[in-house]
């Protein structure tokens, strides 16, 4: 396959993946608006009652993590499992489509949806809540938040590899909301009992949120290399689990293109 054609396939696959998801209101509306509604309520309405802007600034980072987490988990976990169930994957497997193009398209869709959520949150924070950050902080925060697509897509991929089409949505919900809460995306974990704080240390969303909070100097003070190491290790574990799941199922996405 020529590089030009390969590139075109990657691009088209991504474009249609985004279109497909944008046209699905059951997916698009909740994942896009839920973090924003949370922010409007807790960040803008409740958060600006005090003297400082600590609350709207803090939840900008954590709801940003929440906003990136949703599209990655649902797109990959539920979307992939569903496409395996309906047979779309089976059909594409008979074509010359490179398996990488399929994965790329899903990551790009998660990234674009994440970016839309983050942009909406930033605009709301700056204009409605009056959050003021240095310019480098806005950019760094956006970068850190969007980089979270990688571990979260890996987690979604692992779920999609193991769960069937119908159970995948349930599994994703079982992971999504509890993880968001336990990782301190809604309330800081120092408000939790000790046991729950220990659980948070195991969750990728916690470490991702701490990195985002580090940008605005509101993190719990742990080291950046530690957060990064946990995220990298967990991403590798998720990818390994996903590979095992695919090998068990049908070998697709594991195939070497010769």
């Amino acid at each position: 396959m020529t590089p030009g054609r390969r590139f075109r396939i990657y691009l088209l696959e991504a474009r249609f993946q985004v279109l497909e998801v944008l046209r699905e209101p059951m997916f698009a509306i909740p994942t896009l608006t839920f973090p924003l509604i949370l922010y409007l309520f807790f960040g803008v309405i409740m958060g600006t009652r005090g003297v400082s802007l600590a609350v709207p600034t803090y939840v900008l980072a954590t709801y940003g993590v929440f906003g990136v987490l949703g599209p990655a988990l649902f797109g990959f976990g539920a979307g992939l499992a569903n496409e395996r169930d309906t047979g779309v994957l089976l059909l594409k497997q008979t074509t010359p489509m490179p398996a990488g193009a399929y994965l790329f398209a899903k990551v790009m869709a998660a990234l674009i949806f994440g970016a839309i959520v983050v942009a909406a949150l930033f605009l709301t924070a700056a204009h409605a809540a009056g959050v003021a950050l240095y310019r480098w902080q806005w950019f760094a925060l956006a970068g850190v938040l969007l980089a979270g697509v990688i571990p979260f897509c890996a987690l979604g991929l692992a779920i999609g590899a193991w769960a069937g089409g119908r159970s995948a949505v349930a599994v994703v919900n079982l992971v999504f909301l509890p993880m968001a809460m336990l990782a301190g995306l809604w309330l800081p974990i120092y408000m939790f009992p000790d046991v729950m704080q220990d659980i948070a240390l195991a969750l990728p969303a916690y470490h991702h949120a701490q990195l985002a909070l580090k940008v605005i100097a509101m993190d719990a003070g742990q080291s950046v290399p530690m957060h990064l190491a946990v995220l990298v290790a967990e991403t590798l574990v998720f990818l390994g689990l996903a590979a095992l799941g695919f090998r068990r199922a049908d070998g697709f996405l594991m195939r070497r293109s010769r």
């Binding site: 279109l19 046209r23 309906t86 047979g87 779309v88 008979t94 010359p96």
Partner: peptide
């Protein structure tokens, strides 16, 4: 082989929104 062949399978569907 995949370049020279086409297939119509018994599958329940492709993306409904495209």
């Amino acid at each position: 082989v995949r370049v020279r062949r086409g297939a119509m399978l018994q599958i329940s569907g492709i993306s409904a929104n495209l």
